[in-house]
């Protein structure tokens, strides 16, 4: 028993754990409500105003019972997955993303906007609180990718791929973790916030250079969507790793703070 107690370390402070779970909920709500909002106009254009000639993604239903997804002009049949999907009440119809993954779980643009704008504030304020607290406590140093970590990225990946027996030496987080956290928390998350703001007419009137910088309103909408895809990829890999690398230990550490290295 004594041995066990000395084996665990206090790894995550209260604010880190709280932020983690707030982000988890906010992320699911923001993705679901974002897809609801996307459904109202299921196209993404690389332009300022809507422009079919610069359409990057279009999800639609050319005929009853058929859903299609067109990416850079190449059309794929995606019936039952995209374009022709469930309405949440037992039948299928023309709808980009299905009712089971949009928030709320039926077609409701105004409802989706309320969920989205509320949880956008929650996620952003949580990010700010976490950032300030981590900076004050000095924890940020452990997470941010540094120049000296760059040469360790491949050895770490090689270790994961079982091409190397031992990982390169590191302190708290390994170089790949640092790269992932730095990218998500300090590049993608701010970009998703800024692109979301850039597609709002009130913000465009105050800070049009922001909208212009992203290539215009529709382009900002495209970047916003692309940012979501990157965050989903992070979420999927992160969840996979938690499930495969000592699930109970990982969950305990993110709930109680105590981790067994």
């Amino acid at each position: 028993m004594k041995e066990l107690e000395t084996a665990v370390v206090y790894r995550y402070g209260l604010l880190t754990r709280l932020s983690h779970w707030v982000w988890f909920v906010a992320f699911l709500v923001l993705v679901g409500s974002g897809l609801q909002i996307f459904n109202a106009s299921p196209n993404l254009d690389a332009s300022d105003k809507s422009d079919p000639a610069r359409r990057v993604l279009a999800i639609g239903s050319p005929a009853a019972g058929v859903g299609t997804t067109t990416i850079f002009g190449h059309t794929f049949v995606t019936t039952n997955w995209l374009g022709w999907t469930g309405d949440g009440m037992g039948s299928r119809g023309p709808r980009a993303f299905g009712a089971s993954i949009i928030i709320p779980g039926y077609q409701d643009l105004s409802g989706g906007r309320r969920w989205h704008l509320f949880f956008a504030w929650i996620a952003a304020l949580c990010w700010l609180a976490w950032l300030v607290s981590s900076a004050v406590k000095g924890n940020l140093q452990q997470m941010i990718l540094r120049r000296s970590d760059l040469s360790k990225l491949w050895p770490m990946q090689a270790y994961y791929l079982k091409l190397r027996k031992a990982p390169p030496p590191y302190d708290v987080y390994n170089p790949l973790q640092k790269a992932a956290y730095t990218t998500v928390l300090f590049v993608i998350a701010p970009l998703v916030v800024l692109t979301g703001l850039a597609l709002s007419p009130g913000i465009d009137a105050i800070a049009s250079p922001l909208t212009v910088a992203f290539g215009g309103r529709q382009f900002a909408r495209l970047w916003h969507f692309a940012g979501m895809l990157v965050l989903i990829a992070f979420f999927a890999i992160h969840t996979f790793q938690v499930l495969t690398q000592g699930f109970a230990n990982q969950m305990r550490s993110m709930i109680t703070g105590w981790y067994r290295p």
């Binding site: 709500v29 993705v31 679901g32 089971s100 928030i103 709320p104």
Partner: peptide
């Protein structure tokens, strides 16, 4: 199931 749950819960 997490994703699918969101729709019905929030509905």
């Amino acid at each position: 199931s997490t994703l699918a749950g969101c729709g019905s819960v929030t509905a």
